[in-house]
Structures are given as structure tokens and as C-alpha cells.
Design a binder for these strands. Structure first.
Lengths: 224, 224, 224, 224
DNA sequence: GATGAATGAGGATTCATTCAT
DNA sequence: TATGAATGAATCCTCATTCAT
């Protein structure tokens, strides 16, 4: 487990900013930097070669440190992926908060799709490692994060869906939400694999698919 | 390609073709069986652990033979995956031929979706290794097979699409076909992950998605 | 041990040339052919790759038989080399008998060198495997043959030498004979590595070296 | 070339060059020692079993380290042989510089032979692996070193020869030089296989052979 | 006798992880 | 802490040899 997670020794008392307190803090700062450096390197390597084929030595090399240093911060290879996944997951959660703003629920479907999908797509374009990691590592620790992510997203999608089709059974909601997520992921692959106008076209197409899929289900007339 | 495919050495004595030809054939039959056995074992291991994490020794063990035996028929690990992929690909191509029958083109969209999707889904349910292999092995030989499969499917989908929307530009056709394939693959994941009624529900949902996505594009009125 | 060496079941009585006796003989003949075929193949492979790097499967393939067949005639890889070495050794001994004819001892040195060296060189040019095998296999069985060959040659050379320098001590004889053999082997490498005029030049040079080396040692005036 | 040769990463902090530079240097020193240790072990194993039969595990065991350690310094088995050959080659070149001093050219032949042969023989007696490696490994990398060595020696011998027989054609020089080298190598085998007085006797005999072989060719009268 | 499949120990090499400095 | 050498189990693959047919 990375040191960054260790409960910092209640340093918030603020007193005694003398050497005895400054040195550890500086060290911790350096540690944070190292961890960030290592995670960024890991992100790059995972993206390029996938989790399984990524060697810890390669990650250390990419980060410009020795393998020993890597193991000073992470107990093993999986922990790196889990921590990286965790951080990205955290950012993703925050981003999802922005995307699924309650006020969006009252927009008509096309605008809601824009409001939700655009930031999610943007996030994934900026953090390609996220998708690469979550996809298929086969590692329990990450699998769990993936499921966490999936469940969280599923819940959010179901919430939106419920506001549009209040009469649906939970089973229906689950079914449709999973389809939506699946369609989204599939499109994300195409979006991440392209650039510029083509990418934009896939984004538009994704929205079209979802719009046409969902429109007939809407039972609750939305304002405007 | 396994070595057993080598042209059998035409015994020059020529006498007693019954006995002289039966023995080699029987031996070849044993080899064929071993190959099938090994490929089936490989399918299982690949399915469970993925290509990269699958060890040749594990495959041999699963097949109940020694590692040396495996290498009597396959020069290396990749060759196993390529041969397995090739065989499944072959079966897939045949199945696609059935699924995309020319006569299906004249059916209305819902029936066409049934006619095309049902056999493809059935095939994938019966050969889960196919999807696992084609997905992400990172191995050149399989990558190529995957692309071959993808291109072949893309072409077939485009052909269908063109008959429905003759006015579309090639770029549009390509875009939409890729979306269709993506949606199909995403749904396939869900379908393969479920069973019974739930699986059937996902199948139905997939058809609904495609139907609603494609219906507005139809420009060519189909009979009835 | 090859069957060819097994004491043939006293078949020389000559009686009963009927089927009961003919069949075995034919079988034995076939075995002899197989052995010759295998040894020839082994000679080729040993020549090309050396003993250590030569695989029994490669020898079998070169001979056009299966590995199992090879082991029907030879118990292991070494036995092939030993038998091959033994046969070549046998031929070499015969050839040496021709080269070291007693009458040659009375020729003047230059002619004696021609008489001895020419057939030996010819033999080695025709049987390059001989030299390759004898050289450096590291295998006990062959090592022994090599020593046998070496000793036999050494004795012959010493005999010649003694007739030229009857006053030499045994130690001197041994020393000089070893030098002569060494010079011969070194030159043989050069001779086998070249062709045509260049080869002839090396042969001439070898004789020159030996002539000049030995001439000053001659104490016994030879006739004519 | 072992990885340890990589340029040390110029620590950018620059402070305390005493401590900051000593630690890496010490580590590098350890690496150097390991490499030397491994090469010495390899020399022993190659000498005993030859290159092909030498296993990397055996070399590591002989060096008292784990197989992984060996691969920290050498990328593969061949690299060990090449590096070992390279180092010995380097030493040999230096030694040849001493042996073929220009001033030796003006000595009479017997003294020149002493001046040249004695150090070369001494070197080979002290580094028996050199000869073992250069002889017959079949590995491209070493083959090349062997040829390099051979060419270098050939050139030096031709130079000496030319000063003695200025009228010889290049072809003659090449022929004779190759013979000289061949005789030398053959004698070296005998010298390395013996000890004490016997070894000295072979050395003397080698000189006698060369002296008698070359004397008649001398056209240029040397001083004294 | 012949075949070729089967065996399994052994060899080269990699890589996650630990340790001395 | 940082380093990079050290470890050794695990992997892919080879090949001499045996066995069933």
C-alpha cells in the first residue's frame, strides 16, 4: 500500500514548524511526487502494453527510478494498478458528479445526452489509461474497482432513466442501463481510436443511437 | 499450421494399399485428434486466463499430454492461438454465409435482424473462445485474423446497409457499420455473461437498439 | 550396437537356400542398407553442424526415416558416431596400409613423402566427416577411436622415422612424430578448406615443411 | 558488452561529489567484479566442456551466483563468450605488439623466433580459454573475433616474412603465412597438452620446424 | 521392422521481488 | 531513501529416447 494512504501522523496541530516537523513534511512531499511520477509512468506503460505485459522494471525505468524505489512505495505490481485505478476512479467520480447534475435531469433528452456524455468522453480522452486499466486486467483488485465504477455508473444511469420512465420495473431499468453502458463503451473504443472529425462523427453517432433507443421509452413528458 | 498437415509420404512400394494406407491414416487420425484435443484445451485456457497468461505447459496439462507433445504439433504458443483462431474463423465465415443470405436482404428490417443476429449470437455462445481470442491477444498473427474477421463482417454489414440506404456516402456507411458492429460486440459481452431469460432479454434489447437506430435511415421502401 | 556387428548366425553352411534362409538374409541386407543410409546421413550432418549440435532427429530426417527407425539400429547418438568413426577408421587403416608400404621406406625422403601423404590426403578429401568426427567431439567413445587412430598413425610414422634415424631415442621419435602429425593435421585443415590450385599449393607446402624439417635428422644414407 | 558499461547517470544535484560519486562507483565496482567473476567462470566452463555444451546455469553456478544475476550483466550466452573473447583478444593484441616489435625484424631468424614465439606461447599457456574459445564455437560473434585475430596475426607474420623475403609475391606470402600459423596452432595444441620438460621440448621443436622451413626462403641478408 | 506420436528432463531467458550498500 | 545487484521460480522450447500401433 502506498505511503500516501497512510494516515498522516496528525500533523495538523500546526505547532513546531521547526526542523523536526519540516523535514518529514518535505520528505512526504517528495514521496508524493515520486508516487505521482511512478503512477504516471505506469499509466503510460499500461496504455501501451496492457497490464499483464507491463513489467515493473519497465515502469521504474519509465519513471526514471530504480526498481527498488518502486517497491518502496508499492508492495507489488497489482498495487500500482489499483492505486492508479483508484485515483482515476476518484477523478471519474468527481467528473460524473458534474455530468449527472440534478438539473440535467429536466432537460430534454438530446440536451441531456450532451450534458452527460460530453464530459465523460472528454475525461476518457484525456485519461486513456483509465479505460485501458478498467477494461481487462484480470486482476482481482482492479476487477473490483471496475465493478465499483460500473455499479456507480449504472446507478447514475438508472437514476436518469427512472426520471424519464417512472413506470419501468427495476429489471427493465437494469437491462436498459446495461445496454446503454455497453453501447457507450463500444462507442468509446471507436472514439478513442479516432481523431478530429471522425471522432466527432462517432460522438454524434453515439448520441443518435442512444437518442433513438431511448426516445420511445420516455413516458414522462419533460418541460418544453 | 500443425506439422501433421504435411503430405503423407506416398509409400513407394505401392503394394497392399489397404494395410499400407490404413496404418498411416490411422496415425494421422490420432494426430488430428491430438490437435483437436490440444486446441480445445487451449480454447479453455485462453478463455479462462487470456492468451498472454496462458502457459503452454498449462495447455498441455489441460489436454493431458506432456509439453513435448504439444510442440510436436505446434511450433510455439502463438501458433496454437493462430490455428485455433483460424479454425473458428473458418467456421465463423461459413456461419456468416448462412446469416447474410441474399434473400434476407429483401426482408423487412426486424426479420432481417432476426435472420442475421440469431445465428451469429448462437455461434458465439457455442464458441466463447472465439470472442476471447479475437478480442485482445496482442499477438500479430491473431491481430491479423481479428482484422480479417472485422473487415469481413464490416463488408457484409455495409452491403446490407447499402441495400437499405442506397443514397448513403461510403463514409457514412463505414461510420454506421462500425457503430453497428460496436453495438453488437458490446451486447455480445452482456449476452455471453448471462443465461436463460436474461440472455434472451439482452438479445431482444440488442435488436431493439439496432432497429431504432437504423429505421430512420431507411430510404429504400422494402416490400411489405 | 548395430546389428551388423552381431555375429551372423553361422549361415555359411550354405545348405537350404530355401525361403526360410533367404528371408532373413534379405532382411539383414535391408538392415545393412538402412545402417549405411543412416551413417551416410550422420556423416553429412556431423560435417555440417558438428557432433554436439547434430540432433538424432536431423539425422533420421536426412536419412529419410523416422527417429524410431534410427533407434532400431543404434542405441543412442554416440553409438552412431562411434560406428561411423569405426568404419572410417577401418577404411583409414586399410588406406594407411597402402600408404606405408614397406617398400616406400627405402625411397628417398621426397618420394616417400609423396607416397605416404598423397593417399592420406586423398582419403581425407573424400571423407571429410572423418576429420570432423575425429577432431573434437568430446565423446568418450569417439575420443577412444581418435586415440586409436592417433596411436596407429604415430606408430607408423615412428617406424618410418626410425628407419631414417636409427640412432634416435624413443623420446625423440615420439616428439618428432607428434610434431609431424600436428603439422599434417594443421595443413589438412588448410587443404580441406581450399580447392584446386590453392589446395595443391598447400599440399606442396606441407611436403616442403616436412622435408626441410626431417632432412637434417637423416643419419642413415638411403640407397640411391 | 555488459550493461554495466552504461554511462553513470550524472547525478543532477551535484552536491557532495565525494559521497554522491563514491556510492555509485562502489556499486559499479561490484558490478565490474561480478562481470570478471562470471567471465572467469565462463572461461573455466568453456575450457572444460566447450561453448555449445556450456550451460548458462553451469556458468552461474561456477561463479556462485543465480542465473538471474548472470542475465543482469549479459543478455545471452553468446554475449558472455563474445565479451570473454573480446577481452582476451584485447590482451592478445597488446601482447602481439610486444612480440612483433619492429626491432625484432633485424634479428637473425633464430632470435626472432624466440622473441616472437615465447611471449605468444606464454600468453596462451596462461589463458587456455583463449584458444578453446577461438577454436570452434560456431557462434557468429566469436567466429568474427576469431577471424579478426587470424587476420591480425596473418598480417603481422606477413610483415615479418616480407622483410626476410622481399621478392616474394603476395600469394606466396599468404600461403607461407598460413602455413606458419597452422604449424604454430598445431604445436600449441601439443604445448598446451604437456608440461615441464616435454612442453619445452615441443617449443624447441616448433622453433626448429619453422627455422628449417623458413631459412631457405631468406633472400635478404640480415646483419651478422 | 517402420512409423511418428509421446515423454520429460534440461536449457535459455524473464521478471516480480528482496537485499546490501 | 535510492540504488541496482541478486534471487529463483516460472516460462517457452528442444531433443534424446521410448512406446503403441
Amino acid at each position: 500500500m502506498p505511503e500516501s494512504r497512510q494516515t498522516q501522523p496528525t500533523d495538523e496541530k500546526g505547532e513546531k514548524t521547526t526542523e523536526a516537523a519540516t523535514a518529514p513534511r518535505r520528505r512526504q512531499a517528495r514521496g508524493e511526487r515520486r508516487i505521482a511520477q511512478l503512477l504516471q509512468a505506469a499509466a503510460g506503460v499500461f496504455c501501451r502494453t496492457g497490464y499483464a505485459a507491463a513489467s515493473t522494471n519497465a515502469i521504474a525505468r519509465e519513471a526514471g527510478v530504480s526498481p527498488g524505489t518502486l517497491y518502496q512505495f508499492f508492495p507489488n505490481k497489482e498495487a500500482i494498478a489499483v492505486e492508479l485505478g483508484g485515483r482515476l476512479l476518484h477523478d471519474a467520480h468527481e467528473m460524473h458528479g458534474q455530468a449527472f447534475l440534478p438539473e440535467n435531469l429536466h432537460k430534454p433528452l438530446p440536451e441531456l445526452l450532451d450534458a452527460v456524455l460530453d464530459p465523460v468522453i472528454a475525461f476518457n480522452c484525456e485519461n486513456p489509461a483509465f479505460w485501458a486499466l478498467m477494461h481487462g486486467s484480470g486482476v482481482p483488485g482492479i476487477q473490483q474497482e471496475h465493478e465499483e465504477l460500473h455499479t456507480s455508473l449504472l446507478t447514475r444511469v438508472e437514476d436518469v432513466l427512472r426520471s424519464f420512465c417512472p413506470d419501468s420495473t427495476p429489471a427493465e431499468l437494469d437491462l436498459v442501463s446495461n445496454m446503454i453502458l455497453g453501447i457507450f463503451k463500444a462507442s468509446l473504443d471507436l472514439i478513442l481510436a479516432t481523431e478530429g472529425a471522425e471522432r466527432a462523427a462517432y460522438v454524434a453517432e453515439l448520441k443518435a443511437v442512444l437518442l433513438r433507443y431511448l426516445e420511445p421509452m420516455i413516458t414522462e413528458p419533460h418541460p418544453l
